[in-house]
């Protein structure tokens, strides 16, 4: 490892170099080990204050960041707000002012607007970690996905990864695409044409509308959640139709190679994008992703929050 980390913020995978991505993954190896100790806490960020600012609700990601911060001995405050109650520009400026006033060292931000973390990163001395911004990026999710693939398969280069589902609205898909391509994987996007436009091919990925052609060739399938609470009706006719065409059913899972990994960023819709038997099966690494998410977030907080301001 010759790379050094010099970033105060983690905004997306698009701007990270291959070396930087690998550096985070290797640092996460060290922090994963901490979870197996009798005392699962290290003093690395003692005296630092982390603010979890989740303008969009998310229990899973917020909890993971919170636990990661606790394990690094940082103090944590959680702030949630509804995006609808304030106009965007005012919210972010006020947020910035408030955070400066609290002497926050690290801000973990989830926001419905793409670019919100960048906006604050440019204005704050504190480290800003993007925990998902609009349909833009969700870097820690992609890093934990990369970590899980690397842990299970020993490498990422040369693997064929299928990302299945709602790609258009998915920041997880975007961050994964940037990360996987940088590390040398082959990526195929699968889903209804309304949610997987051909434009994505410009990023260097393949697009397919026939899941049964892709599954037998994949080394990893990453199923994205159908965000039916957010979905407008015109994108696909209904859940039944989606399951029939793109759901990873028990039958369809038989097409997979025996060593193909099944991933899902959670929360899973059992019986929609994935059948229960498949989600709980031997090929599923969905719970590994949760465990690894903690290690990856500890690494990111340590790297971004640990360097002198």
């Amino acid at each position: 490892m010759t790379t050094r980390w010099t970033r105060k913020d983690l905004l997306g995978l698009r701007e990270l170099s291959v070396d930087e991505i690998n550096f985070v993954l290797e640092t996460a190896d060290a922090f994963k080990q901490v979870g197996t100790r009798e005392i699962k806490k290290v003093p690395a960020l003692r005296g630092k204050t982390l603010v979890n600012f989740f303008v969009e609700p998310s229990t899973r990601t917020r909890t993971s960041f919170e636990l990661a911060a606790f394990r690094l001995s940082a103090d944590v405050i959680n702030i949630s707000a509804t995006a609808s109650s304030l106009t965007k520009g005012e919210t972010l400026k006020d947020t910035a002012r408030n955070l400066e006033a609290l002497h926050a060292d690290i801000l973990v931000l989830r926001h419905s607007s793409a670019g919100a973390p960048q906006f604050l990163a440019n204005r704050l001395k504190a480290s800003v970690i993007n925990a998902g911004d609009g349909a833009h990026e969700h870097p820690t999710q992609a890093l934990l996905d990369l970590y899980t693939i690397r842990e299970r398969r020993g490498k990422i280069a040369g693997l064929h990864v299928a990302i299945i589902g709602d790609i258009l609205f998915s920041r997880v898909a975007r961050s994964n695409i940037f990360g996987l391509l940088k590390l040398g994987a082959r990526v195929t996007l699968v889903g209804p044409s309304t949610l997987v436009p051909r434009e994505f091919e410009k990023l260097g990925v393949e697009v397919s509308y026939k899941i049964d052609d892709v599954l037998p060739k994949a080394d990893v399938v990453n199923l994205l959640r159908i965000q039916h609470e957010r979905q407008r009706r015109e994108y696909f006719p209904g859940l039944g139709e989606y399951i029939r065409l793109f759901g990873l059913t028990k039958e369809r899972a038989k097409l997979l190679k025996p060593d193909c990994l099944i991933m899902h960023p959670g929360p899973i819709n059992r019986g929609v994008e994935i059948d229960s038997e498949v989600a709980d099966g031997l090929q599923s690494v969905i719970l590994d992703q949760v465990t690894n998410g903690l290690a990856v977030r500890m690494a990111v907080l340590y790297l971004c929050g640990g360097i002198a301001a």
Binding site: D29, A44, L45, G305, G306, I307, A308
Partner: peptide, 18 residues
Amino acid sequence: AMHRDDVGTRRELPVVRA
């Protein structure tokens, strides 16, 4: 590295290993 008392005071972090 993760037990040092100078994290946050250095421009370059010590590399952490497992």
